[in-house]
Design a protein around this nucleic acid. Structure first.
Lengths: 155, 155
DNA sequence: TGGGATAGCATGGGATTTTATGGGATACAA
DNA sequence: TTGTATCCCATAAAATCCCATGCTATCCCA
């Protein structure tokens, strides 16, 4: 489970350390690294382990082959995603077009959100999450107990 | 189940013993430690075992992906939480920003609340709990019998 | 029931390991 | 060759491990 946030530095070679906790999440999975793609919801990146993409795949396979949504999501996620392997020090090289998409320079923030994570420029994330606690307080009643055997959605 | 309260000392390295009773609650779960995050309801911390976060995740997955409340709660809980593993003596290191958020120094109070717990500065907790009994008395009718086979709540 | 033995707990501090990060060397591609 | 990507090693700071200690609670047996 991806938890907590951390801000690391993007070096001159375009490398950045993935937080050790995040690395632990994807350890012993089929691919020793992370998968990252540009969010279709804003100027930031989304990512996860290979298992997340496999879950997405399973979810999309419940839709018709030519379902418009299926195709759109496949294009936005599968086609745009990059496989970023860890180097010996637990870093990944973030391709230049992804830097640019998310407006990253110097520092980048990893944000753990459970089954996936996001990558933000620290300033943009600070702005976006300015009122989180207030909003969370207002929405706390939405966090309802769920029966143990109910299946949660994948996406 | 997290029960009772205990006050332990925060040492120079930022470590604090988690009450043995609390450790027993999370023993034999996937992660040997606790998860802690700043409460969105006041200057204290909330925490629980990994199972609690998994319950929260299941609950959030019943909401729409772009639901404002879902996003706020995800950011306020998942992105803000820290995974704190036990050391050999059953202690955790509490990150500095969490100390500061909860105004902790020297002594800290663990408060068991069933499925989760809270972490308070002893003084703040004493103040907060001044009229717990009164509030509880006013809410006594909320404590209703539940059939044995009904699924337990998340909170 | 008393009281000594034992085990578990909270705590301190030194030693060791991990982490994040920089930079050179090496392989690969255009 | 020249640029690009990957691998490897070095390092300082931080986190973690490990052992020791006093205290408390529990156990056990006379």
């Amino acid at each position: 489970m991806f938890l907590s946030s951390a801000t690391n530095t993007l070096d001159a070679k375009g490398r950045v350390s993935v937080p050790a906790d995040f690395r632990a999440v994807v350890a012993q999975s089929a691919f020793d690294g992370i998968i990252v793609w540009p969010s279709f919801d804003g100027a930031y990146l989304e990512g996860g382990g290979i298992a997340l993409l496999q879950d997405y795949q399973r979810s999309l396979e419940t839709l018709d082959y030519y379902d418009e949504g299926r195709i759109a999501l496949q294009r936005a996620i599968f086609a745009e995603s990059r496989r970023l392997p860890f180097d010996g020090g637990g870093r990944v090289s973030l391709p230049k077009d992804l830097h640019e998409y998310a407006g990253l320079n110097g520092k980048i923030t990893f944000v753990g959100l459970g089954r996936r994570f996001e990558i933000w420029s620290p300033a943009a994330y600070a702005e976006r999450s300015e009122n989180v606690r207030k909003l969370a307080r207002e929405n706390r009643h939405r966090l309802k107990p769920v029966p143990r055997d109910a299946q949660g959605g994948t996406l």
